[in-house]
């Protein structure tokens, strides 16, 4: 049996931009471009990047909320045959959605304000296990206890809860079907910092308790450092660096990763990096992606002609995959 719960190969997601008189698509947004990686069973796989880097789109492709333009996503459940997600139809996906669950970013909009807690958390159980009545109430109560909420809230509405409590509800909903893989899309970024830490600790406890695998999408490096085992750094739809957490934070190999790490505010002024290293700032350039070039070249402090004229190859250095012409040299 494969060690990898998920294997993604050559995944691309292009959105057509419609325009013109007859709505013909004039160009495409390459939100995810030729991305490959695998996720090991039981690990926490982090995906970081600025807004617009395509990390949310990647998560939605894995969930098959979106149908990728190209590539394969192979899911292997415990004691199961591998399943190809990209070509799965609706009815197959409905069974897979019990194994792979999602925690959403915005606890405000991910809970239907018109349904009570028991419906929000238990809806999937009504469908998958045909539970109802007191059996459903018991299961949902257990789930609420698992995420640190009191079971008396079964019949309250989401409006009655704080952001942190709502996110716990979202986690309880994700856990309801005993999933193996949970995709958490910016699961804590809408929360206060103190609540963030609580929620992350809760997620780690749950991971041990239920043997979960997480794909953790975030823009906050501190959060990623706290919870992840391996981290993929995304830039304009591509994974520019994929490494173990410690290697990535101590010895970043891609100039973009360095720029990201340098951008993290350091509270102790004596430990701040020198000003010089803070280059590569600025926004993700608009105007789409240029083929045949390093996407980061316009912002890269080390960019040379080759970077602007040919797309970089993927290099393996010390077990780290880097997408840079000068990986290991700079």
């Amino acid at each position: 049996m494969s060690d990898n719960i998920l294997e993604v190969n050559g995944l691309s997601m292009h959105f057509p931009l419609s325009g013109g008189a007859f709505r013909k698509s004039t160009s495409v947004v390459r939100a995810v471009e030729d991305v490959s990686f695998s996720v090991k069973r039981g690990e926490t796989f982090g995906v970081v990047g600025e807004s617009g880097s395509g990390k949310t789109t990647l998560g939605r492709c894995i969930m098959r909320i979106l149908t990728p333009t190209a590539g394969t996503i192979q899911y292997t459940g415990k004691a199961q045959e591998p399943v190809e997600l990209v070509t799965s139809d609706d009815s197959l996906l409905r069974t897979i959605w019990r194994d792979i669950r999602m925690v959403f970013q915005d606890p405000q909009s991910s809970l239907n304000p018109r349904l009570p807690v028991i419906e929000i958390v238990g809806q999937c159980l009504r469908k998958s296990e045909k539970l109802s009545g007191s059996a459903l109430a018991d299961r949902v109560s257990t789930l609420l206890t698992n995420v640190g909420l009191r079971p008396e809230i079964l019949h309250r509405y989401p409006g009655a809860f704080s952001g942190g409590q709502r996110q716990r509800l979202g986690i309880a909903r994700a856990l309801a079907t005993n999933p193996q893989l949970v995709v958490a899309d910016e699961a804590v970024s809408a929360l206060d910092v103190s609540i963030q830490a609580q929620t992350l600790n809760l997620m780690q406890d749950l991971q041990e308790q239920f043997e979960l695998t997480y794909i953790f999408i975030a823009h906050d490096l501190a959060v990623v450092e706290h919870i992840c085992d391996r981290v993929a750094v995304m830039y304009l739809g591509q994974i520019v660096e994929l490494a173990d957490k410690d290697e990535l934070f101590n010895n970043p190999k891609h100039p973009y990763t360095r720029a990201l790490l340098n951008a993290v505010p350091v509270p102790d002024p004596r430990k701040r990096p020198e000003k010089r290293a803070r280059r590569g700032a600025g926004e993700i350039p608009s105007g789409g992606v240029r083929p045949d070039a390093c996407q980061f070249a316009p912002r890269c402090p080390h960019a040379q002609d080759i970077c602007r004229n040919s797309s970089p190859p993927e290099k393996q250095i010390d077990g780290v995959a880097v997408l840079c012409h000068f990986a290991g040299e700079i």
Partner: peptide, 26 residues
């Protein structure tokens, strides 16, 4: 594009159920 509609899909509801149970009441 609301998250709770997507969540309902992920809970295994069909298009019709999503429309009747989540969209129409809202």
């Amino acid at each position: 594009n609301e998250d709770f509609i997507i969540a309902a899909r992920l809970d295994g509801l069909s298009h019709g159920e999503v429309i009747l149970k989540h969209m129409v009441p809202s």
